[in-house]
Design a protein around this nucleic acid. Structure first.
Length: 893
DNA sequence: ACCGCCGGGTGCC
DNA sequence: ACCGCCGGGTGCC
């Protein structure tokens, strides 16, 4: 019988359906929910799927290991070293065997395959996610010519263990735990010798990044090419030097060392040895705080590191951050004497034993910048403003896009958006060989399994940069996405990253933190605005900012309505808190709060007659939905309790809880109940708020009819009269930005201000991208007939908007989240502002406005403890406390 | 000899 | 591959 079977030809083998694949007994196979079909979501919504995947990664356990071989090694170029990990990659399209699993080394170079009879059992388990992933360790025979022994470790969720063991037995795969110690060590299965407790762990992460920020102070500086017309701050010159170094240095990437004796390169995380020098990682992460001038810095890099031109000189003797390479014999060691005679990078680096490769004259020339739509024109403006026009810029966005790759490659800079990149699907942008690719606001690329990040990864570029103003340390997971984009091998492999960094950090294993430090020191630069230069001066010197609170007395009629509404609310909501029904009736509470806040602004914002009446405490009704949508449209409420971030594409559940769409949908796909109250909930029933309607008061408030002044509008006009007219400032106009979160209130206030003789423009959510640009340009203009006042709805005034022509900021109503207010003020008080800035926050006396301010203070304190993971219970308590505070239930006004 | 045995050709999936 | 396996050549002692 053996003979007959063996006589089958290859062809027959190829078509051989694996009929013997074990089929699970009904009900025994626990297959986790399939990966979330994230394509359905819009561009920024990959986060939740990504987090879910990270969670699963952390939950998987090792089922055991078995011995087998890597076969067919003679056909492939990939090599393995002793005690090195290998990656297994399913190859379902293999023409000889649909169960094929290829074995790659840590640099993802193909080494061989797993034997056919083993994959017959293993592949289906991987495909059904019974085995979450498998990885191998080579301990012996690494140099074999034809096949290499390998220990395969199977990992998966605990609930699948039994099934996997059963199937392995069927396939003669003897899953054991008596694994060779060497292999165990490589897999880091050894118990952690020292773990940190929760507080220690928070401290460690916190300290780690502080340390990075501080240690980064003593770097070199570089003066940009003279095509940059703007002067650079010292910290920007430091960043430029660092970026030039990151791009041009041929130093080994992090975690690689060079063995003098053997001449081999060794990866200290994986034991991988190779005689081929690992690919240099040109680029990195620029994660400076907002307002430190990352955009200008990047432009300076683009202008200064051009093909065929010598990169700029270094101005200061650096602290040597090269690996301690041997000094060429006969030369003096210190680069010190060259202080007054700056040398180009190349010669400097030769001194420390590392060479430099500036962009080649014959290589690609174009830099691709990928950014959110909102900052697209900011890039264009800054390039126009800060360079002498010698950079040719092409905007690859919207209707007028060339399909000719050569056309793109001819420019110095091509600017596009994440949306365009994703939609491009490799048609044009992937075909160009870029000199460098810059991802601006790189935290937008979160999920390596979703469109845009895949697209970003696939771009062909010599140099790669991730620019982000959001500190990456808050979410380790986001960091992984950036590494994947930077192609930092081998950490760009998710399972490798999880094992080597993510898991140890989450387990409190100091090894994980050490690795993070090494990694971040090597490839990331982050400074904060609070940081000081070595001589003690701050990084950026901004004119002073004065923030004061102006208390306003509500008008008599508004006050009466306010009191009635508050009294009713205190009764109903106090009752709900007491009997625990609040969280089914969150909507009601939120509407009351919204109405109170609106009354503080202007009575016309609140429709008469239907307020203050008690709402019945009932299961979800259409009315409740309507309430919630009202609140949603008025712009945001709490942070989403799934991602703990601010609401993005908020949706409402049947039980009247609000989440980001991208957060709740994957959660419901796993378990069809509300994460907050566990009520049944189908993804199909989610009610969506209209996208960024921004403060529109969607319930028929009488806009435009009653424009009688309110206390706040009167106070605003009075302020403008004294502030703007008082300050002549050498012929320059004094201008003001007025923020409110209620567009309807902006309508009313704008009329009053115009009536007082001020020229106004407005920037609210409804305005198109082109309209916004025009509006900002008009306002920023120094012309005598340019606008005096710009009204901005809080959410429309997001990052990237530059309103530095103003030196007065008026906040008409306090916002729930202090960070949002800070961000708004930063539109004015930022790089480019050369006058003192005065911020006035209008607050109604004895009202919810004051409570909002208290709440802000609380939030500020809470933000400091952001690393503390809160339980659902704790978060619920917090929200309850927030509501109580707002409605003065704890200390009645 | 519709076998056994020999020795050359060959080799992942 | 210093293997296993395949298939052609071959055939008493």
């Amino acid at each position: 019988m053996g003979r007959a079977a063996k006589k089958r030809t290859r062809k027959e083998d190829a078509d051989d359906t694996p009929a013997v694949v074990p089929v699970p007994a009904p009900g025994t196979a626990h297959v986790p929910a399939p990966a979330v079909p994230v394509e359905r979501f819009d561009e920024d919504l990959g986060t939740q799927a990504e987090d879910t995947e990270a969670e699963v990664e952390r939950a998987v356990i090792c089922f055991g290991a078995f011995e087998t071989y890597i076969v067919g090694v003679q056909y492939y170029s990939g090599t393995v070293s002793r005690n090195e990990q290998v990656r297994l990659v399913r190859e379902p399209k293999n023409p000889y065997d649909r169960n094929a699993i290829q074995v790659n080394n840590i640099l993802d170079i193909k080494v061989g395959h797993l034997p056919r009879e083993k994959v017959l059992y293993l592949a289906p388990m991987l495909d059904r996610k019974l085995v979450h992933h498998a990885s191998g360790v080579v301990t012996t025979g690494a140099n074999n010519k034809y096949s290499i022994p390998v220990t395969l470790f199977l990992w998966g969720l605990p609930e699948n263990k039994e099934e996997v063991i059963k199937r392995c037995r069927l396939g003669q795969l003897v899953l054991g735990h008596n694994i060779e110690p060497a292999a165990r060590r490589v897999m880091e299965l050894e118990p952690v010798t020292r773990t940190m407790d929760a507080t220690e762990r928070e401290d460690a992460l916190d300290q780690l990044f502080k340390r990075l920020e501080e240690e980064r102070q003593s770097t070199r500086m570089a003066t940009p090419s003279e095509t940059i017309t703007a002067p650079l701050y010292p910290h920007q010159k430091e960043a430029l030097a660092w970026m030039l170094h990151r791009e041009n240095s041929n130093a080994l990437p992090p975690f690689w060392s060079h063995e003098e004796k053997t001449g081999m390169y060794v990866n200290i995380l994986s034991s991988y040895k190779t005689s081929v020098r690992p690919q240099v990682c040109r680029g990195g992460i620029l994660a400076d705080d907002m307002g430190l001038g990352k955009t200008l810095n990047t432009i300076a890099l683009i202008a200064s590191n051009r093909p065929g031109a010598a990169p700029p000189a270094l101005e200061e003797a650096p602290k040597n951050d090269e690996p301690p390479a041997k000094k060429p014999k006969g030369k003096t060691k210190g680069p010190g004497p060259s202080k007054n005679a700056p040398k180009v990078l190349a010669s400097k680096q030769d001194q420390v034993g590392s060479t430099s490769s500036p962009p080649s004259r014959d290589g690609p020339k174009a830099t691709l910048i990928v950014c959110p739509v909102s900052v697209l024109s900011n890039w264009e403006q800054q390039i126009a403003e800060h360079t002498d026009g010698s950079l040719s810029v092409y905007r690859y966005h919207g209707a007028s896009k060339t399909k000719v790759t050569d056309e793109l490659a001819r420019h110095d800079v091509v600017i596009t958006t994440y949306g365009t990149l994703t939609a491009d699907k490799g048609a044009v942008l992937n075909k160009v060989k870029w000199l460098r690719v810059v991802l601006d606001e790189a935290h937008n690329v979160k999920n390596p399994n979703v469109g845009q990040s895949i697209a970003a990864r696939q771009l062909t570029a010599e140099r790669r940069w991730a620019i982000t103003g959001t500190p990456v340390q808050n979410r380790l997971n986001d960091l992984y996405s950036l590494l994947a984009f930077l192609r930092l091998q081998p950490l760009d492999d998710r399972s490798f990253w999880t094992r080597v960094v993510d898991k140890p950090v989450h387990a409190g294993n100091p090894v994980g933190y050490d690795r993070l430090v090494t990694l971040m020191t090597a490839i990331a630069l982050r400074r904060t605005k609070e940081q000081k230069l070595k001589d003690g001066t701050p990084l950026v010197r901004l004119p002073p900012k004065e923030v004061l609170v102006q208390t306003v007395e509500m008008g008599l009629e508004d006050r009466a309505r306010y009191s009635n509404l508050l009294r009713a609310a205190q009764e109903t909501i106090g009752g709900m808190i007491e009997d625990g029904t609040l969280f089914g009736n969150y909507a009601h509470a939120l509407e009351v709060i919204l109405r109170l806040r609106q009354l503080c602004c202007h009575g016309a914002l609140v429709p008469r007659g239907k307020n203050g009446e008690e709402k019945p405490v009932t299961p979800p009704t259409g009315e409740q939905m309507a309430q919630l949508l009202t609140v949603l449209r008025a712009g945001g409420l709490d942070d989403c309790c799934v991602c703990l971030g601010s609401m993005f594409h908020p949706v409402v559940t049947r039980c009247a809880h609000v989440f980001c769409r991208g957060c709740i949908v994957p959660a419901l796909e796993r378990k069809r109940s509300c994460p907050l109250c566990r009520a049944d909930c189908e993804p199909g029933e989610l009610v969506e708020a209209p996208p960024d309607e921004d403060g529109e008061n969607g319930d028929g408030a009488s806009t435009g009819v009653q424009t009688a002044p309110s206390a706040k509008t009167e106070a605003l006009v009075a302020r403008l009269k004294t502030d703007l007219r008082a300050r002549g400032d050498g012929g320059r106009k004094a201008k003001a930005v007025v923020f409110s979160q209620f567009v309807t209130f902006i309508d009313i206030a704008q009329k009053s201000v115009e009536a007082a003789g001020f020229k106004c423009v407005r920037l609210t959510g409804g305005v198109s991208a082109a309209g916004r640009e025009k509006c900002i340009r008009e306002f920023q203009s120094p012309d005598a007939d340019s606008p005096d006042v710009i009204f901005v709805s809080l959410k429309a005034g997001g990052v990237g908007i530059n309103l530095t022509a103003a030196s007065f900021v008026y906040m008409l109503d306090p916002w729930w989240n202090p960070a949002t207010e800070d961000q708004a003020m930063d539109r004015v008080h930022r790089l480019g502002q050369d006058r003192p800035v005065k911020v006035v926050r209008f607050v109604c006396k004895d009202s919810i406005d004051e409570k909002m301010m208290e709440l802000q203070q609380r939030k500020r304190e809470l933000a400091k403890a952001a690393f503390v993971k809160k339980t659902e219970k704790e978060r619920q308590e917090m929200r309850k406390a927030d509501l109580s505070l707002l409605l003065s239930l704890t200390n009645l006004v």
